[in-house]
């Protein structure tokens, strides 16, 4: 089987278009995850044990079941109750909630890495709890959380192909469509792989650099 360059160039524009959609899906999903993840972690730090336990279990549930199944669940459950969500909406919800669970764990790790003495010092200067979070804890919890957050940014990007199953026209969906139409899969699937590599490797590198920069900037080792 030989690689056909002429055909590669012919289908390339569709893949560039789909790359944009993939990035949109990843970016949108990540935005949801970043915010919802924070909600999930703070909800686990309330004084109400029952709330903490329930949220904890929800996070575990989301983390221990396949994203693919969650995507189907969100997409198909709406219509059963007369709510029709578009593939994009359900896709973003599913992937956003899934990664929110992961990010909440990253945040938790970051917060727990701040020494107890910092809380005590804040209390000693009579700082209220919200202010302690904002001014003392979160700035220190962020640098250790960056590498985890970065990993999941790349992770969410690599998981967007799962949205193809409900018809989100991202890279994998495009490759399937082009491949099926022409009965040729070598070029489409390989191109998707190369595009993923071309984006995820530099991103991972940049994240490491960014983490180092933040640590230097904050005077942390």
């Amino acid at each position: 089987m030989e690689w056909r360059w002429d055909w590669t160039w012919e289908i390339l524009p569709r893949f560039i278009d789909a790359t944009g959609k993939t990035l949109m899906a990843a970016g949108g999903g990540y935005a949801i995850a970043v915010v919802l993840g924070l909600v999930l972690v703070l909800a686990q730090r309330t004084p109400y044990r029952i709330v903490t336990m329930c949220v904890r279990e929800v996070v575990e549930f989301i983390r221990s079941t396949p994203l693919l199944l969650q995507v189907f669940f969100v997409f198909y459950v709406g219509p059963q109750f007369g709510i029709n969500l578009s593939p994009w909406t359900s896709g973003l919800i599913a992937i956003g909630v899934h990664y929110a669970a992961y990010l909440s764990e990253v945040y938790r790790g970051g917060i727990e890495s701040v020494p107890k003495g910092q809380w005590e010092a804040a209390k000693a200067i009579n700082m209220p709890v919200t202010q302690t979070y904002r001014r003392i804890i979160i700035p220190q919890a962020l640098p250790p959380a960056i590498s985890g957050m970065g990993n999941y940014l790349v992770g969410i990007f690599k998981d967007t192909p799962m949205l193809s199953v409900i018809g989100v026209a991202e890279l994998m969906h495009t490759a399937n469509a082009v491949g099926a139409l022409n009965y040729r899969y070598l070029e489409p699937y390989t191109m998707v792989g190369v595009i993923f590599l071309a984006i995820s490797l530099p991103t991972a590198f940049l994240i490491t650099q960014f983490e180092k920069w933040v640590r230097r900037k904050m005077g942390m080792k």
């Binding site: 994998m172 699937y189 998707v192 792989g193 993923f196 590599l197 995820s200």
Partner: peptide
């Protein structure tokens, strides 16, 4: 690690 499991599976 740089590409998706789904892409690898189909490939």
């Amino acid at each position: 690690r740089g590409t998706s499991l789904l892409v690898q599976l189909f490939w």
